[in-house]
Simulated scan of single mutants.
Amino acid sequence: MKNNLSNPTLYLLSVSAGLVVANLYYNQPLLHDIALDLKVTDAQVSNVALSTQIGYALGLLLIIPLGDKISNIKIIKIDFLVLVLSLIGAAFSHSLIFLIISSFLIGFTSTLPQIFVPMVAHLSNDETRGRAIGIVMSGLLIGILGSRVLSGLFGEYFGWRSVFYGAATLMALFFILLNAKIPEIKPDYKESYSKLMKSLWFYFKKDPTIRLATLRGALAFGGLSAFWTTLVFLMEDSFHYGSAVAGGFGLFGVAGALGAVYVGKLNNRVSKNKLIISGAILLILSWLIFLVSSHSIVGLIIGVILIDLGVQALHITNQNIIFSKNTEARNRVNTIYMVGFFIGGALGTSLGAIAWNSFGWTGVSVLGLLISVTILIVQLITSKRII
């Protein structure tokens, strides 16, 4: 199979993926500032992050399967319009409920990177697919982590609303670039939308590798979300730092995310089982370090690098596994995987807030450790039977 994806287009998709997915995470370092501005508690304002992730999971479920039925260009045009309006709505919010609704819509429409990943898998050949997915995932992961840095800085010095105004402007600019540069893919699926959605269950039921990849991804992202949601509270409680410092931890996570391209290449040469076990071990180590680092900035920095390396190793390997099969339904199998992934994130956000309010940083660290150990146990039990 010929590789139909040029490097300039691949890197445009990578940058775009990072900027779009960043919309999901701008609010996390700002939660304390938003709580003060809207006069609500830290527990109440955590619903802003939760609603964003729930919206994203639903957007994945309802929008991304359309990539197997409708032109990618049509999806991008409609999605960007609603996304820009939602970001502007968040910036104008003067009540918690309106911000929660706007955040839900931001999450719902920030699903485009999950169109991009199956797109590069479709346009690449077997020899270049791992590298291409790794490059897009590298951009996506840097967007996730870098978003916290930017939002923390802008939030502290220009107010939290400036972050959403800036994001709306970026989305409008990149819509123009994508519309001009990305290749159009016209899928062959001709059945109705209801049959398209019903087929999700068919693929989930028939392929155990999809189910296991979804479970691993959900657990890993649940732990990561618990960490980032509660880090800003730890910064205030133990170090008396603001959102800029909490967001600045994303810089250290970027160092881990830069390894995404390397992990993608390793998927063509190293056993998937070894990569998954290695990722789980990295997560366990990161949470052990977090557990003893409630008053150590250095410990937290080391933990951030390890946790992001571990999550990316699991995530990219999971996607390589599911994209290697069911080539006619890559958007649908990606939907199954990513819906589970972000449901895990939403649960991790909620459980992280509960653990923080009940047991402080020790509770959050024990939660993350239990989640990571579960990933390793599941993989050890199933690795000899199913990748």
Results as ranks from 00 to 15, higher is better:
W287L: 03
V373K: 02
L60A: 01
V20K: 03
H315P: 01
T41G: 12
S296C: 13
L351F: 13
L219S: 05
M171Q: 11
F154K: 04
I64A: 03
A255R: 07
R330H: 11
Y189K: 11
V378H: 07
S286H: 12
L170A: 09
D68A: 07
L224Q: 12
G217R: 00
G264F: 00
I305N: 02
Y241M: 06
G107C: 09
A168V: 14
F239C: 02
N72P: 03
F290K: 02
T214F: 00
L200A: 09
N268C: 05
L367S: 08
R129T: 09
I302A: 07
L10W: 09
L62K: 02
A220C: 15
N331W: 05
T209V: 13
G352I: 00
G143S: 10
K181P: 11
S293I: 04
G352A: 10
Q319V: 02
I289G: 03
F202Y: 10
G89E: 03
G360Q: 07
L275Y: 03
Q312S: 11
G259N: 07
L61Y: 13
V245C: 03
I54E: 10
V40F: 10
I34S: 01
A35F: 07
Q28I: 13
P118W: 03
V120K: 05
I182A: 13
G247Q: 02
G360M: 05
V261F: 13
I101W: 04
T327N: 14
H240C: 01
P29H: 08
G299Q: 15
A355S: 14
R148T: 03
F239G: 01
G250L: 01
K205A: 15
L38D: 11
V304R: 02
P113I: 00
Y157E: 08
G146Y: 09
K195W: 11
T349L: 00
G217Y: 00
V15P: 14
I277P: 02
G223E: 01
I63P: 01
R148C: 05
V373P: 08
S93A: 15
N267E: 04
M1Y: 05
T209H: 06
I307T: 15
Y337S: 00
G242A: 10
I277E: 14
F174C: 14
V339N: 00
F239T: 02
N331G: 09
A353R: 09
K205E: 15
A355P: 06
L219P: 01
I301K: 04
I354P: 00
S383A: 14
L5C: 02
R148M: 14
V120E: 05
A35C: 10
T169N: 12
N331Y: 06
L81R: 01
S51G: 04
K195I: 05
L19I: 15
A35H: 08
S199M: 12
T52W: 15
Y165L: 09
S372E: 01
L282D: 15
I281C: 06
A22F: 12
F154T: 14
D37V: 00
F164R: 06
N268E: 08
P8T: 11
F154D: 10
A313M: 13
V136W: 06
L224H: 08
S358G: 01
N47R: 09
I307R: 03
F252L: 10
S286N: 15
L234G: 09
P29V: 04
L173Y: 12
I97L: 10
T382N: 15
W356L: 06
H122I: 06
F204A: 05
Y11M: 15
